[in-house]
Amino acid sequence: MMKMIGTAGKIALLASTLMMASCSSAPDAGAEKKTEFNIGWSIYAGWMPWPYAQQAGIVKKWADKYGIKINIVQVNDYVESVNQYNAGKFDGVTVTNMDALTIPAAGGKDTSAIIVGDYSNGNDGVLLKGANSVSALKGKQIYLVELSVSHYLLARALGSAGLSLSDVKTVNTSDADIVGAFSSPDAQAAVAWNPQLSVMRGQPSANEVFSSAQIPGEILDLMAVDTATLKANPALGKALAGIWYETMALMKRQDAQGKEARAAMAKLAGTTPDVFDKQLTTTFLYDQPAAAVAAADSPALVTTMTRVRDFSFSKGLFKGASSADAVGMAFPGGKTLGDPAHVTLRFDDSFMKLAAAGKL
């Protein structure tokens, strides 16, 4: 499960020009009409429906309906998939709400989140050895991928106990190394995501003192598309929504066909059906379009994105910005957060609404 922002150096590279100079209040009206599109994805339980849909012919079915071609392209490194989207190699990408904000949007690339696919409902957690409370984290060294959703989760955990990030010391550790780091007797605390989290949770005296299940809806997994491309090619949004909800309906079935679909997704993720099904129990999938529309339209989303942008700004992830308001965000119903003249992240519920109404 790859869900990290990446290092500050990567962020600086993505936003090497001042954000204020590159942002715009509306997508480029001159975007070209196209018939072929590339969508990037990386391995994570909530994103495995996309490659499965391609394998099963669901992608082709919906693309053919709208007279287009959609290529679902795997990138082994999550950060690199977002970087490639940011550079224009992909028309869309699977991405978290935080990364959509801090990489393309903060760098000036106008991006629309058109499918709210799921939220982490326990896939991310804070671990502590020898104690079982968040307050016991005070003064500890905590191993995590800095400037990532793990860092955000830690901040939310500490806040729940009246603590702040200044009360602990973080040790930047890659997701590839964090299991080994936490196994050291000197390591007392860590923050990680699945599948690493499940392995680390099994270490002696390790206790999960906080998880993403305690902040439901805050670590969101999205399908994001370049806004100008989407405006010029609305068929892409319709096809992607059709693909997602048809695949959701199939994978949620408890019969042999549903089991077969989940097993195929597990294989694509490089794991077993049992492990994949277990990961799904801590992934809240918005398998019904009406539920996804409700999530996108809820005031809770604005509250969540306020927390996310304030944290991101405090960590220097809005390069060139003088305040957290510099990156504008738009929400359904005309709501905005930040500078309305420089909106570069848009939560667009229109395609989910079409799916909910059976009008795709």
Results as ranks from 00 to 15, higher is better:
Met1Gly: 15
Lys3Arg: 13
Lys3His: 15
Ile5Tyr: 12
Gly6Ser: 11
Ile11Asp: 07
Leu14Arg: 10
Leu14His: 02
Leu14Gln: 08
Ala15Arg: 01
Leu18Gln: 10
Met19Pro: 00
Met19Arg: 06
Met20Arg: 07
Met20Pro: 00
Ser22Trp: 00
Ser22Gln: 13
Ser25Arg: 09
Ala26Leu: 10
Ala26Cys: 06
Asp28Ala: 06
Ala29Phe: 10
Ala31Lys: 05
Glu36Gln: 03
Ala45Val: 12
Met48Ala: 06
Ala53Arg: 06
Ile58Ala: 13
Lys60His: 12
Ala63Val: 12
Tyr66Met: 08
Ile68Gln: 05
Asp77Ser: 09
Val79Leu: 08
Glu80Tyr: 01
Val82Tyr: 01
Asn83Val: 15
Asn86Ala: 07
Ala87Met: 14
Lys89Phe: 09
Phe90His: 11
Asp91Lys: 07
Gly92Ile: 09
Thr102Gly: 00
Pro104Thr: 05
Ala106Phe: 03
Ala106Lys: 02
Gly108Asn: 02
Asp110Ile: 00
Ser112Phe: 02
Ala113Glu: 11
Ile114Arg: 00
Gly122Asp: 03
Val126Met: 05
Ser133Trp: 04
Ser133Glu: 12
Leu137Gln: 10
Lys140Phe: 14
Gln141Thr: 14
Ile142Ser: 12
Val145Pro: 02
Ser148His: 08
His151Gly: 13
His151Thr: 11
Leu154Glu: 02
Ala155Asp: 11
Leu158Met: 08
Gly159Val: 07
Gly162Gln: 09
Leu163Met: 13
Leu163Glu: 10
Ser164Met: 06
Lys169Gln: 13
Thr170Gly: 05
Thr173Val: 07
Ile178Thr: 05
Ala181Asn: 10
Phe182Leu: 03
Pro185Ile: 01
Ala189Met: 05
Ala190Arg: 09
Val191His: 02
Val191Asp: 00
Ser198Leu: 14
Val199Trp: 01
Arg201Met: 11
Arg201Ala: 14
Ser205Arg: 04
Ala206Arg: 08
Ala206His: 12
Asn207Trp: 14
Asn207Ser: 12
Asn207Lys: 14
Phe210Asn: 06
Gln214Lys: 03
Gln214Gly: 05
Pro216Ser: 08
Glu218Arg: 01
Asp221Arg: 06
Leu222Asp: 03
Leu222Ile: 08
Met223Gln: 12
Ala224Ile: 10
Asp226Ala: 04
Ala232Gly: 08
Gly242Lys: 13
Ile243Phe: 02
Glu246Ala: 02
Leu250Gln: 12
Met251Ser: 06
Arg253Met: 04
Lys259Asp: 11
Lys259Met: 04
Ala264Pro: 01
Leu268Lys: 08
Pro273Ala: 11
Phe276Met: 06
Asp277Cys: 13
Asp277Trp: 08
Leu280Arg: 10
Thr281Leu: 10
Thr282Cys: 11
Phe284Pro: 00
Tyr286Trp: 08
Pro289Leu: 04
Ala291Trp: 02
Ala296Ser: 10
Leu301Asp: 00
Val302Arg: 10
Thr304Val: 15
Thr306Ser: 11
Val308Arg: 02
Arg309Pro: 03
Phe311Leu: 14
Ser312Asp: 11
Phe313Gly: 09
Phe313Asn: 07
Ser323Ile: 11
Val327Phe: 02
Gly328Arg: 02
Ala330Cys: 00
Phe331Leu: 00
Pro332Tyr: 04
Lys335Tyr: 03
Thr336Gly: 07
Gly338Glu: 03
Arg346His: 14
Asp348Arg: 11
Ser350Val: 12
Phe351Ile: 01
Lys353Arg: 15
Lys353Glu: 15
Ala356Cys: 14
Ala357Asp: 15
Gly358His: 09
